[in-house]
């Protein structure tokens, strides 16, 4: 980093009329920048899941071993109920957003809170499942990728919950309005993504 210290004469020439901020950027697209940013982030998240699904494909399809490994059992039913819990949280999320759009503070707060707790329930059930499932990630490759995919998804639920928590706190502090609700909308998109991803994980790992 030596060479960084060379650029002394860097103070930009101050123009006659003082500017206190940048000029307003031109909006060259109807898409909201934060929305677009979240969308692109989700694309790259999908690809990360793609990498894990590639591993799943090789372990299960290319190598053709039993799934799950001999003697192991996947709790389809509990996980199915858990799926329902997570999916319903998508609806409560939407409810909260509608609340913000309609200046309905109660709906907003209640929606955020239920979403948060539904997500938390999902995570707890998932952890409980790990405790009782009877095989470990280091038992065999099937176990590895089972924990790999559900764990990766769990990590996303955790991140989503963190975002939701912030949005919930802010909604209780009186933020968000019909005009300004991006702070709900953006974490909401992420949350919907987490839900959809779970449906894919659930179908491939538990059902198929």
């Amino acid at each position: 980093m030596e060479s960084a210290s060379v650029g002394l004469g860097q103070a930009p020439p101050v123009s006659e009329h003082e500017h206190h901020g940048p000029p307003l950027a031109n909006q060259s697209s109807r898409v909201d920048p934060q929305f677009l940013g979240m969308l692109l982030f989700i694309i790259s998240e999908v690809m990360l899941f793609g990498a894990f699904f590639t591993a799943y494909f090789f372990i299960r399809v290319v190598n053709g071993d039993a799934w799950p490994a001999q003697g192991d059992e996947l709790p389809k039913l509990v996980a199915g109920i858990n799926t329902a819990v997570l999916i319903s949280s998508s609806f409560t999320m939407h409810w909260a957003l509608e609340g913000a759009r309609n200046e309905n503070r109660r709906a907003l707060r209640a929606g955020m809170l239920t979403t948060f707790f539904l997500g938390l329930t999902f995570l707890c059930v998932q952890i409980n499942e790990y405790v009782h499932i009877g095989f470990a990630p280091h038992d065999n490759a099937q176990g590895t990728i089972f924990y790999g995919l559900t764990g990766l998804h769990g990590a996303h639920v955790f991140v989503g919950l963190t975002l939701l928590l912030m949005a919930t706190i802010r909604s209780y502090r009186g933020h968000f309005s019909a005009k300004e609700h991006r702070g709900i909308e953006i974490p909401g998109i992420y949350w919907h993504f987490v839900d959809v991803m779970w449906i894919v994980v659930y179908t491939t790992v538990y059902i198929l």
């Binding site: 690809m47 590639t54 280091h138 790999g148």
Partner: peptide, 25 residues
């Protein structure tokens, strides 16, 4: 970058997990 880079992240996660948690990728 947005589409491809997660794959190297994935590959290194696998290596990391195999190394430190004894998984079997």
């Amino acid at each position: 970058v947005v589409i491809a880079t997660p794959f190297i992240a994935g590959s290194q996660f696998f290596v990391l997990l195999d190394r430190s948690l004894g998984t079997h990728f």
